[in-house]
Design a protein around this nucleic acid. Structure first.
Ligand SMILES: [Mn+2]
Ligand SMILES: [Mn+2]
Ligand SMILES: [Zn+2]
Ligand SMILES: [Zn+2]
Lengths: 137, 137
DNA sequence: CTCAAGTTTGCAATTAAATTGCATCCACAT
DNA sequence: ATGTGGATGCAATTTAATTGCAAACTTGAG
């Protein structure tokens, strides 16, 4: 297990198990967010329910966040530090219509819009569809 | 059938049927977006599959748009004219965490963020969670 | 080191929404 | 008025998410 993985789990007091190590490292090493099915594919011996509950545990402990990018299934990405700061406020993510990958634009800030009168905002979720740099012709 | 309903359907060359009239009027008269289940509840004699295909037809003809507000089911709202202009670009919607309703903020404009190099945007979907004016204490 | 207590896991089953096949029915252009 | 392509109802299927439960783990106290 990498030092980073161990640190993240201990920091959040999450019990260290084989499943959690491998799922977390998979997410840490991925350039884009992953669905439960993606993880199942990469860890064929792992059980779907276990992956589901592992991700839920990570999410509950703010180790990652769930991204609903308008595709069929939910994707997950590890929170970068920058992302974690406003973990429950701003979530800009980019979905590439060519490769189908979803990227977390955690560094990326956008101007918060002014809401109509008497509306209070708790959280913003922004999904941008388009073409990523890898797929640019 | 209201004049507005008739006009919308004829304009888009959608065959006029009892189902379509009632579903469209339901959406037109609703202050917030509706799920298939919501429509089923309001039109108990209507078939789920028919509602589904009716909404799909409306969506294909840009009469309404689908909203994925991070709840379990997709919601639908009729496009206002203002909304239609940028129908495929900007979709700000507000989900109230108290009443659970989702509102189309079609008039509402926000500053488009600058994307990282080599990223091209086709569409923005913004979901804002919070408390709506009706639910404000 | 050993063990108990509480967690996590695997497997199977269930939920819930979206989606489809197909035979029949209907809107509407001619 | 009528024929035809599209719309509908009903039942079945798909697919992802979610849960129940007993067995297998992790960890810290002794
Ligand atoms: Mn993020
Ligand atoms: Mn809209
Ligand atoms: Zn791409
Ligand atoms: Zn409300």
């Amino acid at each position: 297990m990498s030092a980073r993985t161990e640190q993240l789990l201990k920091e959040k007091k999450i019990k260290i198990t084989a499943n959690r190590i491998l799922i977390l490292e998979l997410l840490l090493n991925s350039s884009h967010s992953l669905s439960i099915a993606d993880i199942e594919e990469d860890l064929p011996w792992a059980d779907r329910a276990t992956i589901f509950r592992t991700l839920k545990t990570f999410e509950d402990n703010a180790l990652l966040h769930a991204i609903k990018d308008n595709e069929k299934s939910v994707k997950y990405a590890v929170c970068s530090d920058a992302c974690q700061v406003d973990h429950h406020k701003i979530h800009p993510h980019f979905h590439c219509d060519v490769c189908g990958n979803t990227f977390c634009l955690s560094e990326y800030n956008f101007q918060l819009p002014q809401l109509p009168d008497n509306y209070t905002a708790n959280k913003y979720s922004l999904i941008i569809n388009g073409i990523c740099s890898n797929c640019q012709k």
